[in-house]
């Protein structure tokens, strides 16, 4: 497996702050992985994302120790420009990134800067507008969209660039539930095509359904990093880090003894399976029996 983002003994201090926001982390995200980053507010999730594209420290300033290696380039040798050729990120606050007069121009804007040819550009605008449900708003000002529509636009702008690594930092927080699911499923398709995806999201149900790995951050440190299913089996540990289980997993946990579960279901489909054969006494399920189901849900 080829590492695409490597943190090596990396610590980061915001300007004028004495305490590190990220404390000595060493983790690797490999090419083609779909990683969910979870943790309470101020755990360092956004700072980790900012560091993955070099905004911290290159744009914000501040001090750092150790290294972040993106696509083989060391932090000391990179610029935000070199990194964003490969890595794209959307943050929660969509509106403050907009500069153009229409939605269409906004999507095209970043592509112009990358020298993408005109017909190709128009095709991509059409495609991502459709994927993100913005087709009806192409002539509208980005500032005259609802909050959720603005978030969709920010995601569309990123997807149009087709970055190798897609990072969405709480950029589904204002989407309606089905729209949120659509964004997860959209990036999941990119993942299936081989792209690397990193999602920071408080919606643990969607993280459970779509990601293959979970990274748990707590007070600037990486506490857990591994297979999504394995991590979600550990309720007490997650609670220590102020993270809850997906609702269906939690329900199965609460009925573990009654139902004799050895592995907890982590998606709705799995839980429906596990609970509906209850008359046959016990809905025991082994992780292996539904690891295939997951990718198609």
């Amino acid at each position: 497996m080829k590492p695409i983002i490597e943190f090596q003994d990396y610590s980061y201090f915001y300007p004028k702050e004495e305490e590190a926001a990220i404390k000595n982390i060493s983790v690797t995200i490999n090419q083609g992985e779909f990683v969910g980053i979870i943790g309470r507010n101020k755990a360092g999730k956004s700072t980790a994302c900012l560091s993955m594209i070099g905004i911290a420290p290159h744009t914000i300033g501040g001090d750092w120790i150790g290294n972040v290696i993106v696509n083989g380039i060391l932090l000391d040798e990179s610029t935000v420009g070199t990194i964003t050729n490969h890595v794209g990120v959307v943050f929660q606050d969509a509106e403050s990134q907009f500069t153009q007069e229409t939605v269409e121009d906004e999507i095209a804007f970043a592509m112009c800067n990358m020298g993408i040819e005109r017909t190709e550009m128009l095709n991509r605008v059409k495609k991502v507008a459709k994927d993100c449900n913005l087709t009806d708003f192409l002539d509208r000002s980005p500032f005259q969209l609802s909050g959720g529509q603005q978030q969709r636009l920010a995601v569309a702008c990123l997807l149009a660039l087709k970055p190798e690594v897609v990072i969405l930092d709480e950029s589904t927080s204002q989407l309606d539930p089905i729209g949120r699911d659509e964004i997860f499923s959209l990036v999941s398709k990119l993942h299936q095509l081989g792209r690397t995806v990193v999602m920071v999201d408080h919606n643990i149900e969607k993280i459970a359904q779509y990601t293959s790995k979970i990274m748990v951050l707590f007070d600037g440190e990486v506490k857990l990093y591994g297979d999504t299913r394995e991590i979600l089996q550990q309720k007490e540990l997650l609670n220590q880090y102020h993270i809850r289980l997906p609702q269906v997993t939690d329900a199965a946990y609460g009925l573990k003894e009654e139902k004799g579960f050895t592995t907890l279901p982590i998606t709705l489909d799995e839980a429906v399976g596990a609970f509906s054969n209850e008359d046959k006494k016990g809905g025991d399920i082994s992780g292996a029996s539904y690891s295939n189901e997951k990718s198609c849900s």
């Binding site: 539930p177 699911d181 609460g254």
Partner: peptide, 27 residues
């Protein structure tokens, strides 16, 4: 464009006699 809470969806799928709005209700 709304999905009910996940626990409500689970309840609706496996249990016809009630509507569950929280994990506690369900358990």
């Amino acid at each position: 464009w709304i999905e009910p809470p996940q626990i409500t969806q689970l309840g609706n799928a496996v249990c016809k006699d009630g509507i569950f709005l929280s994990v506690n209700d369900f358990v």
